[in-house]
Design a protein around this nucleic acid. Sequence first.
DNA 1: AGGTACATCTCGGGT
DNA 2: ACCCGAGGTGTACCT
Lengths: 231, 231
Amino acid sequence: MRLIVARCEVSYAGRTSTVLGEAVRLLMCKADGAFMVWADGGSPSVKPINWMAPPTVLEEERDGRGSLTRIAVRRDAGAERMEIAISEVISESEHEIDTGASLAKEGVEREIQDLLCEAPHFCGEGMRLVRREWPTDIGPVDLMCRDGEERWVAIEVKRVAGIDAVAQLSRYLERIRRDPEMRSCRGILAAKSIKPQARVMAQAEGIDCVELDVEVLRGEREPELTLFGSS
Amino acid sequence: MRLIVARCEVSYAGRTSTVLGEAVRLLMCKADGAFMVWADGGSPSVKPINWMAPPTVLEEERDGRGSLTRIAVRRDAGAERMEIAISEVISESEHEIDTGASLAKEGVEREIQDLLCEAPHFCGEGMRLVRREWPTDIGPVDLMCRDGEERWVAIEVKRVAGIDAVAQLSRYLERIRRDPEMRSCRGILAAKSIKPQARVMAQAEGIDCVELDVEVLRGEREPELTLFGSS
DNA sequence: AGGTACATCTCGGGT
DNA sequence: ACCCGAGGTGTACCT
């Protein structure tokens, strides 16, 4: 990875076009072709002010003393491009950084889905998993189950559920119910946290809400009596 | 801004939890309190593998020779935390980097909305803007207009419109039409590009689609005869 | 290649 | 503080 601290102007043209006046910035050039321009404060804080995602082609110009004067980054046959005009190089270094290794994440939607598949009864007594990623012609619904009364139940799993999650499940239900056998399929929105507006919209659409406690799902803690106290 | 290249282990616990085994990584510590851990390849390429957004509290430990051995980053009273155990420091530097300056973006949704406000007739003959960001109880619709026949028209502006945009406009229309005076309000989805599936869904919901040419909106180019060739 | 959904999304604007 | 929507979203997965 190359790290360059330089006084520079940056212009980008592609999906939009931007110009950054002269200032001291960090230029970060990853081995995978990603190129980023960083400022040190303000917004955005955890995002570069300008960047090019790989694959990119880099072109450099140096003056007679070997000092960087210009960097051009191209992508998509030049449809996207960034130009860095450098007036002063303050630091230039290169380091061997390891490539990203496996990173296990816990608590994301996939894990909640995994846990719920093992214990669907947390969405209602007698609930049984029929199929995960049940296909519809506009995308798969996370879980398809049958409840204690043999009724079909489509479950949409989210980490945090907003109104978009309700809209998503509604779209699926509309498709699913076109099958005469599934006409009475009901919907459950299951999430670690459900926004108030999403609850209101879910109620209006006849969709049940279940807030999940991941530690309970994992079996690390006993469920509390109020677990099903939603709707 | 501080840049540290070090062999280290990283663990994060907060919104999710992750563990990263020992490897050489770049640690980036911004003046605004943002902290990032970078690998050099793999995915995601333009995002750090681990990070903490400001505000953060940093805590460092050094050995007898003054070499970094541990960094702890805390946030939100310790609810979110990252621990970096350092076995070898390869490089450590600090630079004065300028704070983010103003960055003008063109071609994003806001600019399209601006241009459309100045020239609503691109969404239909006789179209007049009544109000921008027309409020509903589930959020504002981008533009509220009246067409040549005095009919209300709600316009949702997007850069790229997918089915989620159609769903969003449908939700707004459902609310808007609860007002008896607006019962016949129609909807237009206006975007630089509209996905085929979104067109299908829009047609099913009686929503019109208008694909916009930003250069024409800006007055840089003459409209082509097929501008309204949508449905 | 195109469509769909997830993300520790991040970020800005509103209430 | 929370909610909502935009993003040059990026990224994986599927068709």
